[in-house]
Design a protein around this nucleic acid. Structure first.
Ligand SMILES: [Mn+2]
Ligand SMILES: [Mn+2]
Ligand SMILES: [Zn+2]
Ligand SMILES: [Zn+2]
Lengths: 132, 132
DNA sequence: TAACTACTTTATAATGATTCTAAAAAAGTG
DNA sequence: CACTTTTTTAGAATCATTATAAAGTAGTTA
């Protein structure tokens, strides 16, 4: 019930599928990173019903547009998303192929000295690659 | 002729195709960013011969493995490469969908305060997204 | 509730970047 | 020139993602 308002306020109808996806994404103890494929498995396990893959894609993109999810840029054939939408950075473990959060305080302040005429900074993201 | 040694020293046979791709990539006045698709067009225009798409992929990946190219992580359906292999960061212009180099000196020093046990830092990359 | 409209879900097909395959060609070696 | 190994190539396969279009659902108004 707790996500109905949230969806309505975003102009998204609170459908059964969207509410189920909300549960999986936002009722977790901790925030987490995922690909669509991983999320699909998680949904199947947690909720005991099938949601069409197209709906999962649609919903994730809708949630991203509304700012409830972030897309994490790493070189992968699959897109990674993050339920942690706070301003933060990432470790990427090249061996385990896993993302790890770096809170903003874990990285010293970042100073972008160069300016581009007529453009403004929307975000600053740091990706730290790790290896054994 | 000037790339024959470079390729041999890397254990890559200096074939006609590899030498032509070297010319396009490394004889340019400035370093540049590209996707495989963009590179294919560039090759067709500059060199007047066709190189199989599979060969372009093979060669680019071979060059990347040898450290002659860098892969740039941005969220795109296509992989971006960089002929500038120096340690540097990027602006990504969301409107023009173009990468712009940020030399290391354009960004203050970055301090990663968090450590992960048994892992060492391989690289630190900053992506600054720009909008109008 | 019924009727109506707009939005959503779904199975399935299409797309498109990338990788694979296996045969022909080229390079290196002696 | 043989002979081996690597490379190129066209075309097929893969697979994440997006498009399609028909059926279902939500919201609204009577
Ligand atoms: Mn997307
Ligand atoms: Mn690659
Ligand atoms: Zn994160
Ligand atoms: Zn660059």
């Amino acid at each position: 019930m707790k996500y109905i308002e949230k969806l309505r306020n975003s102009g998204l109808r609170p459908t059964k599928q969207r509410l189920q996806i909300c549960e999986v994404l936002f009722d977790a103890d901790k925030t987490f990173h995922f690909t669509i494929n991983e999320l699909e498995k998680k949904i199947k396990k947690q909720i005991n019903s099938k949601i069409s893959l197209a709906t999962v894609y649609n919903t994730i993109h809708a949630f991203e547009k509304k700012g409830y999810l972030k897309q994490i840029p790493i070189n992968s054939n699959q897109t990674y998303f993050d339920t942690n939408v706070s301003d933060h950075h990432h470790f990427y473990d090249l061996n385990d192929e896993k993302l790890i959060d770096l809170e903003n305080c874990d990285v010293g302040p970042i100073n972008i000295l160069k300016k581009i005429n007529g453009k403004k900074i929307k975000s600053v993201e740091v990706l730290v690659k790790l290896e054994d």
